[in-house]
């Protein structure tokens, strides 16, 4: 059974501009899926739909067999606990006026998860490789990589089954990027991961499955190694050809 099922979803703006056209996706428990495409291909819009922040014009999204309905508060509370996101920009994804404790504990507080918040936050920080001594510090005291770890701690603190990562490493320098990818790889052992990126190299290192989006349509999907070794669609071939390589 699918964990998250996207069935023939379309989305467009009132101006008439179509962003997603007939997108279908089946995400099973434990999957690590890379969603790849150029800027404007609809990746981030698809994530917003998966988060229930925007409603599709047509088609449906279901979680564990239940249709996603943003008007159903009880369902959405359970859904929020199960599905969390890590954003691209670690500088704008953390409230600068809140301490690390307050930031990471937000899902626990808002979802009314009745346990020792401080203890859970410390456990989440340790699991992303941060010291629990930072609870009282503010985001501006940390580097980009550390901030992204704080953002990941917030995303996993409530114990979600699905983690969405929206270009989560593209704003980081190379060495930090490698360490965050390693961290996400560790986390993906215990949860489903949907990793949105335009960087095929990162997706290849992290994801078992890949979905290629072009102008709001899925043009190719399947096993990452197979597709990267033998791309069928011309767009996938162009994407692979555009990956920078070291000169011989």
């Amino acid at each position: 059974m699918s964990l998250l099922k996207v069935d023939n979803v379309t989305f467009g703006y009132s101006s008439g501009k179509s962003v997603l056209a007939g997108v279908s996706l089946d995400i099973g428990p434990g999957d690590t899926i890379g969603l790849v495409g150029e800027s404007g291909s609809g990746k981030s819009t698809l994530l917003r739909l998966l988060l229930g922040l925007t409603r599709p014009n047509s088609g449906s999204i279901s979680f564990n067999g239940t249709a996603l309905d943003p008007r159903n508060a009880q369902f959405m509370r359970a859904y929020r606990r199960q599905v969390q996101i890590v954003f691209q920009d670690p500088y704008s994804s953390l409230d600068p006026r809140q301490t690390v404790l307050s930031i990471v504990a937000e899902p626990l507080r808002s979802l009314k998860i009745a346990r020792d918040h401080r203890q859970m936050v410390m456990e989440a920080l340790v699991s992303v490789g941060l010291e629990p001594t930072i609870l009282g510090r503010y985001p501006h005291e940390f580097s980009g990589g550390q901030r992204q770890r704080i953002a990941i701690a917030r995303a996993i603190v409530a114990g979600p089954s699905l983690l969405l990562a929206d270009e989560a490493v593209s704003a980081l320098d190379l060495s930090t990027r490698i360490r965050i990818v390693e961290l996400l790889k560790q986390l993906s052992a215990s949860m489903t991961l949907v990793f949105v990126s335009h960087d095929i190299g990162v997706v290849a290192a992290l994801c078992e499955k890949i979905v290629i989006l072009e102008q709001g349509r899925i043009v190719e999907s399947g096993d990452t190694k197979t597709i990267l070794a033998n791309p069928q669609h011309p767009y996938t071939q162009r994407l692979l050809a555009s990956v920078p390589r070291m000169p011989a």
């Binding site: 988060l51 922040l53 959405m76 509370r77 929020r80 606990r81 599905v83 969390q84 996101i85 954003f87 691209q88 920009d89 704008s92 994804s93 953390l94 409230d95 930031i103 937000e106 899902p107 507080r109 808002s110 979802l111 953002a151 917030r154």
Partner: peptide, 16 residues
Amino acid sequence: LDYITAARTSGTSWLG
């Protein structure tokens, strides 16, 4: 800003 979206996906109400 993203931290508002993060708050929404964390289940925080608009008043919150």
